[in-house]
Design a protein around this nucleic acid. Structure first.
Lengths: 186, 186
DNA sequence: AGAATCATGTAAGGGGTTACATGATTCG
DNA sequence: CGAATCATGTAACCCCTTACATGATTCT
């Protein structure tokens, strides 16, 4: 715990996806993130925080930067992945989320970048996440069985969660069944 | 904005529910919260934060406290609702949540206390929340229709959200269809 | 005798949001 | 000529989590 260490909010690793195929400066990454079909609709980040996250990723050794001066304008800070950054990114984009509350933002982010890695990566990710979700569902169903008689409120809580997880599984099935070049039809 | 003002994290109003029918000291409220059929399973609060929340609710004028000394032990701080606190609590417990992300914790908390207010309050709350959820569903479906052709990722995002909302609606229907004295059967 | 319970808190630190700062350039 | 864009950030504040503090009492 000397410097620049400390557990990372895993969602921040998503930003690495923007430089997976080449160097870009912070502002350009920010614009790409907020493009109509980008992740901005899922996870909104303010500019000030954006730059702070990039700085942290650099401090953690996942990004390096070089400064490009340009007449008049503030100089661009161009980022690229370090080998450690590439490892962390690939590990991140291929692994399912471990808690239901991460699905809403983080799994969607993973899926977004997995699509850019190719159909194989997408299929793998969805399969692994399905397995995790099936585990959640079983847990909740077990809790429902336990809570049923004397604890009606607890029963409702677990039934709610089970329903949410079941909807995730349906959606994952739909994603898996959808051709990757989905654009033309439907 | 003189003192003790500032918008409240609405979930904190749930704590007021513990003194809705009489005065209690902080530790007793904490134990009740964490009873097997209590809210502790839904929203876990550490002791240190618990006392901080109570202090804030008092500073905001929703609670008043009187100190009860007792031999040897630290004195109990007994809280009761102020009129403003009762208003805020009743308003809170009767109104649906406005964002999907509040459902998981806050709506369940509202439901928990609504059950203690009686079946009429429960039925009202569920009805109002159903209306709100139907609105969310329509929104997401509209987004799906818009995003469909050129933005496959956005389409998936909105389809995911629609699925989650649909599951909420199913669950609300199940809650409404469930007799309030559900304990004995099933 | 040691552990859990009773009954309060304080202190430090991490993470995020909001607001503010800068200063040239291109667009309408 | 004013507004939006380009391209970076810093500062202050709030919320929450984790860790630590206290000191008698009842349970095992």
């Amino acid at each position: 715990m000397v410097n620049g260490e400390g557990a990372f909010p895993s969602l921040a690793l998503a930003l690495l996806g923007l430089v997976r195929d080449g160097a870009r400066h912070g502002y350009a990454m920010y614009r790409e993130w907020n493009e109509p079909n980008g992740l901005g609709a899922v996870w909104r980040i303010k500019q000030s925080r954006w730059y702070a996250l990039l700085a942290r990723l650099e401090a953690s050794g996942y990004l390096t930067s070089t400064v490009q001066p340009q007449g008049g304008r503030p100089p661009r800070k161009v980022f690229r992945l370090t080998p450690a950054g590439r490892d962390a990114y690939l590990q991140w984009v291929r692994s399912p989320v471990e808690h239901g509350r991460q699905f809403r933002l983080e799994f969607l982010a993973k899926l977004h970048f997995a699509r850019q890695e190719g159909p194989g990566v997408v299929a793998d990710l969805i399969d692994r996440q399905r397995a995790v979700c099936r585990g959640w569902l079983e847990e909740q169903q077990a809790h429902m069985a336990e809570a049923s008689p004397e604890q009606p409120f607890l029963y409702l809580v677990h039934r709610y969660r089970a329903g949410q997880v079941a909807a995730m599984l349906d959606w994952l099935d739909a994603c898996a069944g959808m051709p990757d070049r989905y654009a033309a039809s439907v």
